[in-house]
Design a protein around this nucleic acid. Structure first.
Lengths: 154, 154
DNA sequence: TTAGTAAGTGAGAACCATTCCAATGTAACT
DNA sequence: AGTTACATTGGAATGGTTCTCACTTACTAA
């Protein structure tokens, strides 16, 4: 269950984006803010099961699509067939394991400059009016490196 | 129909990757090499209809998944529900229109440095053994800017 | 050159994540 | 409180992708 602080914050976020505040939206957003496990729709339904026992799958999909449209949340694919979601409070990108699908958040000082410079270059070269980006890096997570008996040759 | 030069090149690419050379693989790869329209499976089946009139959908999917595994091809989502494919002969990334789904290839001198630096940072921070990345930039393509009557405020 | 064999192909069925639909419920504004 | 536009539900429909399996074929080793 999300803390009161999170509930207050998410309430404000919904209002700031002029989104109608329903219990479903509020609770789902709070779940995303307080969990960084890159959940699927199924994971989210399980996670909010206590507060929203009868939430419809369509509602969760609708809600997430709304959040994505408002850039509150980003969609991620890790190859397991379903979409994963991530609250995007602070700029970061994702490292995705090509073996087990594990997704981890990554950021570093200066990342936001890299991003901005990529967007600027893209605008110049393509004529697009840029609204956002996605960066992902693929590889084997530390656990899978061990599991597969791969030794890092450095 | 792909040129002889393309057919020779793709034959070599398949052999280099130790992939069994079937007509289906050869023709589909040649199609991807000579078309930069980021096709879907459906588009590809139409495109190779003359050479492979009875190619099965499964075959096209299998072939593309094999190419993806071998990093010959990358997968792209533009929000229309189906996967788009792109031959990845030279390093580049994609700008995707959030309105019409149009995908364009983008690159610039120094892009490969940006990529390498992102991968290096990621390896350090996450412990992943990096094998690749995806970068995408979103925005409105020039046509949609006009269509939607948006003026660039610069 | 010719088996032998591991791998690829094709048609259709199956799968399943996501969207659609129509009825019901409810948040927000007057 | 009344109104209205929007959100929620659950079930059905959709459709992209994978699975199955019988058949065919590309490679390899003699």
């Amino acid at each position: 269950m999300a803390s009161n602080a999170v509930m207050e914050e998410t309430l404000q976020v919904l209002k700031d984006h002029k989104l109608r505040v329903t219990p479903q939206r509020h609770i789902i957003l709070a779940y995303l803010v307080s969990h960084h496990n890159h959940p699927t729709v199924e994971t989210i339904r399980d996670g909010v099961g206590k507060e929203l026992p009868n939430v419809g799958a369509s509602t969760v999909y609708n809600t997430l699509n709304t959040f994505v449209d408002h850039h509150l949340v980003v969609e991620l694919q890790n190859g397991d067939g379903s979409t994963h979601y991530d609250y995007f409070g602070t700029p970061h990108y994702h490292a995705i394991c090509t073996n087990c699908g594990r997704i981890v958040d990554v950021t570093y000082p200066g990342f936001s400059d890299t991003e901005k410079s990529l967007e600027k270059k893209t605008a110049e070269l393509s004529g697009y009016m840029i609204s956002g980006n996605h960066m992902e890096v693929y590889g084997l997570c530390p656990e899978c490196q061990i599991k597969l008996g791969i030794k890092n040759n450095e």
